[in-house]
């Protein structure tokens, strides 16, 4: 994806398209309506090529909740088979992004594509079908409090497959052991620590063998060591799933997307980084390219520095 393609497409029906300068396709996208001029000066909209196709794509997406504009012309892609990070300061709409991908929220304008298919235009039955491609780890695991750990992880299998209870047990126990919860199968979510709940949510997100796994702030509420361990686990599982997918000749390699504001885990885990600020991508690209970026905002953010364009307001 090049810079040119991030410019608003004239055929999209949003008020901005008309205001976009005609001719000179490489011109910068205009800021969203009502935004002060200098709010987007660090948005270079540069996308360093990843050499892969995108499995999820946001096309000029706008979303607001009442007076709060969250996504303000977001154009972003998640390249296939990589661990992508969606990185950004708090309150920039990172979790909202995830909810758009799985159709829990719909954009006010613009489009969200999953495997080239438009999510907002899906019928309800198609949407439920499409969601099986996803594994989603919620912030606090979102385990069902009325079920024990085993039943929680077995839930998607019981609902979507005709597997026998024995096969289910095999898969569930494999996943539970993988996340280090093999001994906790009978315990209920309220008897677990925050980190354990996240790992259990991870196990549940993986049981259906999803093509795309989304992590909503996996590091929130965890200490640095646990965060690092969880990051390692994510990488390990991803590697394993990619190998499996290659061996099975699957159409799509498994793609992971992690939403976070934790720079440490981004440096450790990410193959690809999208930096989101004020509802738009500042810059995106493979991790090395991003860590060497000249953009002062990116440099400040990835270094976790208090000096730079990003301040308390």
């Amino acid at each position: 994806m090049s810079v040119a393609s991030t410019a608003p497409q004239p055929e999209r029906h949003d008020p901005e398209a008309a205001a976009a300068p005609l001719g000179g396709g490489s011109s910068r996208p205009v800021p969203p309506p009502g935004a002060p001029d200098d709010h987007y000066e660090f948005h270079s909209y540069t996308v360093h090529p990843s050499g892969r196709r995108n499995v999820v794509e946001f096309v000029d997406t706008y979303k607001s909740f009442g007076p709060n504009q969250i996504l303000r012309g977001l154009t972003m892609g998640l390249p296939e088979g990589m661990v992508s990070m969606i990185l950004g300061p708090s309150g920039t709409g990172k979790s909202v992004c995830i909810k758009h991908m799985v159709g829990l929220l719909y954009p006010d304008s613009g489009d969200v594509l999953v495997h080239g298919e438009s999510v907002p235009n899906m019928t309800e039955s198609r949407l439920f079908e499409m969601r099986k491609k996803f594994g989603l780890l919620f912030q606090d695991g979102a385990l069902f409090s009325s079920m024990n750990l085993y039943d929680n992880v077995a839930f998607p299998l019981r609902h979507h497959t005709n597997k026998s209870e024995q096969e289910i047990e095999e898969i569930v126990m494999r996943r539970l052991k993988e996340v280090g919860l093999g001994n906790a199968r009978e315990r209920f979510p309220n008897e677990l620590s925050g980190g354990m709940r996240k790992r259990a949510g991870f196990a549940r997100a993986l049981v259906l063998g999803p093509d795309i796994v989304l992590f909503d702030e996996p590091d929130s509420g965890l200490d640095p060591v646990r965060t690092a361990l969880l990051g390692e686990l994510i990488l390990e599982v991803h590697r394993e799933m990619v190998e499996e997918a290659k061996a099975e000749g699957k159409e799509f390699l498994p793609t992971f997307a992690v939403v976070t504001h934790d720079i440490m885990s981004a440096r450790r885990v990410a193959d690809y980084i999208n930096v989101l600020w004020r509802g738009r991508i500042v810059e995106a690209g493979p991790a090395e390219a991003m860590l060497n970026s000249e953009n002062p905002f990116i440099r400040q953010f990835l270094a976790g520095d208090s000096q730079g364009p990003l301040s308390m307001d």
């Binding site: 909810k99 829990l104 969601r131 099986k132 385990l143 409090s145 979507h160």
Partner: peptide, 10 residues
């Protein structure tokens, strides 16, 4: 977020 989780799990 249990209700969201239910929906995402189809």
């Amino acid at each position: 977020e249990e209700l969201d989780a239910l929906e995402v799990l189809g």
